[in-house]
Design a protein around this nucleic acid. Sequence first.
DNA 1: CACTATTTTCAATTTATATTGAAAGTTTTG
DNA 2: CAAAACTTTCAATATAAATTGAAAATAGTG
Lengths: 168, 168
Amino acid sequence: MEIQEAKRTFISLWGNFGTQWGINRSMAQVHALLLSSEVALSTEEVMDELKISRGNANMNLRDLLNWNLVYKKSVPGDRKEYFFAEKDMWEVAKRIVKERKRREIEPLIQHLNEIRNGLGKTSDSEKEFAKTIEGINQMVSRLNSLSDTLLKADEHAFFGMFMKYLKK
Amino acid sequence: MEIQEAKRTFISLWGNFGTQWGINRSMAQVHALLLSSEVALSTEEVMDELKISRGNANMNLRDLLNWNLVYKKSVPGDRKEYFFAEKDMWEVAKRIVKERKRREIEPLIQHLNEIRNGLGKTSDSEKEFAKTIEGINQMVSRLNSLSDTLLKADEHAFFGMFMKYLKK
DNA sequence: CACTATTTTCAATTTATATTGAAAGTTTTG
DNA sequence: CAAAACTTTCAATATAAATTGAAAATAGTG
């Protein structure tokens, strides 16, 4: 397999994977392109490589900057901005988890609490539904704390701990 | 807040949350409806409650059965099938993780390996790209093993372990 | 086995989401 | 400070994904 073909395969794979997890295809593909590139790329280069519009390229590059998955740099004597990806994938995983927690999980827990608090304690069906919501809330909160641990722990300590746990 | 309103809020919340994670809105809403219900519901009841078509209701109920998040039962003297949700949310989380691993994560690891294996070792750029793919593969594989641990560990042992880890 | 109830399928359609591209905005430079 | 280089915005459009609903298939009943 030729390297350019391998890169294209990877970009397409990462794009599909993204869509399965609620991340838009272009954003995942721009990310994959920058991960594949040894050098920082301009908006135009991203547009050309992926055959996407300027607006799309710009928007997704900006989003990737917000997610802290991509950085900018400028080249002396050149007005354009150049973008390159964070390549430490453990960092990447941590940052994605951190953002999704903040944007999605924590608001969800918030909403579940509100639903729970709005319920009376009179009827059996209210009590029953309150229990269900509590069960969901507990599960989500647990996964949320689990991800906190993931974020705090450094790679080796974390997996070392698991190994130890699995052996005993 | 009236309980019916609380349930509707929950169904809508769970539906939105689903879409953010690549699960279609109807499926998440059918799931939420069954989680909210004390009794098993027929396809018609699901259609009526959520205002969705028969095809949609049927398809999503079948999917939820495949995910092991919902069960069927039959009522003597009634031909219809009735559906009810698994309410142990820790079980629910485990089953979702298990399915997504099987359907999405493991094939991804497979594909990444193929890309890696197809690369030569001649040029620097090939070596560089191989490194990137390896980094991604390692990260994904690590999260995959982490979720294995999650699946194996029972609730209390697992979180007990984290507590201990965080304190020391 | 004919009839009825129920479930499943899938082409057509609708809806939600992503993308485009041209115009407006911003920054840089001579 | 005007012109050029570049970036951002956003209404219009295109595309992908979900949904419908009627027809076909299957299962249950007398």
